[in-house]
Computed example of a mutant assay.
Amino acid sequence: MPEVIFTGPAGRIEGRYQPPKTRHSRIALILHPHPQFGGTMNNQIAYQLYYMFAERGFAVLRFNFRGVGRSQGTFDHGQGELSDAAAALDWVQGLNPDARACWIAGFSFGSWIGMQLLMRRPEVEGFISIAPQPNLYDFSFLAPCPSSGLIVHGSADRVVPPSDIQTLVEKLKTQKGIVIDQQIVEGANHFFENKVDELMAICGSYLDRRLAAAAKEDDAA
């Protein structure tokens, strides 16, 4: 788990990078929860997502948004953090020019940043969005959503009413050719306390299904 430092729009960005197993391996970018509420790249769910992708051979990067840990700058209410994420993806793509595709996985605030990023990057083939907050953040930019992905949240989330996430999912499901897989972790709160293992099992199973389907398409081609 090499520590890395690279240059972002607001200065130095601190991250952890796992090199890929092959030069054509996919890239995964992990985005952590809200910086002003204790969110860092070492958040338990961000950490687990990092290893989930690494175990499947991805080139994986997780990093601290501006103003967090050793990353320079100050919190910028999402706009600057989106620029940080774009710079992070540029950096890892520069190391892996032959990567076949990218995935983005974000938790809470990180899922909002991640879904904005995938709108700007056509090479993103899939996403995992954990506990998005459409009641707090505007997701109207997803018109249309360009990639299929997983949205997973807890049934006991008091930060985000499940009905608000349901509305978001239903909106995204109307996009032709896009498949949004929604999973609900029963009894889980916004932070998935005592439910992280169940959450990660859902994410890992989804990723394995998508990778198996992509491999079949490659074989057919």
Rank of each mutant, 00 (worst) to 15 (best):
R62N: 05
S129V: 14
L142E: 03
W91I: 02
I13R: 00
F75V: 10
Q44I: 10
V159S: 11
A213M: 04
R66H: 00
L95M: 14
G80D: 05
P19F: 04
N42M: 15
D181Q: 09
Q166T: 10
I165C: 10
V124W: 07
S147D: 05
G67S: 10
K176M: 08
V185P: 02
M119W: 03
L95E: 12
N135P: 04
G57Q: 09
D208P: 00
L136S: 11
F75A: 10
L82E: 07
E3A: 08
A201F: 01
N64C: 03
F75L: 03
F109S: 02
Y51K: 11
F58L: 01
G154Q: 07
F192Y: 13
G154A: 11
V159C: 04
A10R: 12
P161E: 14
P97S: 06
A215V: 09
I13H: 00
T174V: 11
K173C: 05
L82Y: 11
K216N: 09
I165F: 08
E125H: 03
P122V: 02
A46M: 07
F127P: 03
Q133D: 02
E14R: 01
P19W: 13
V196G: 05
P33V: 06
V152D: 08
H77E: 08
Y47H: 14
L95H: 11
A156T: 02
K21Y: 12
L89K: 01
I45E: 06
D181A: 02
M52P: 03
P2S: 08
T167C: 00
V169C: 06
I30C: 13
Q44P: 00
Y50R: 10
L172S: 01
F63W: 05
E217I: 13
V4T: 11
P33G: 03
I5L: 04
Y137N: 08
R158K: 14
A221W: 02
I130D: 00
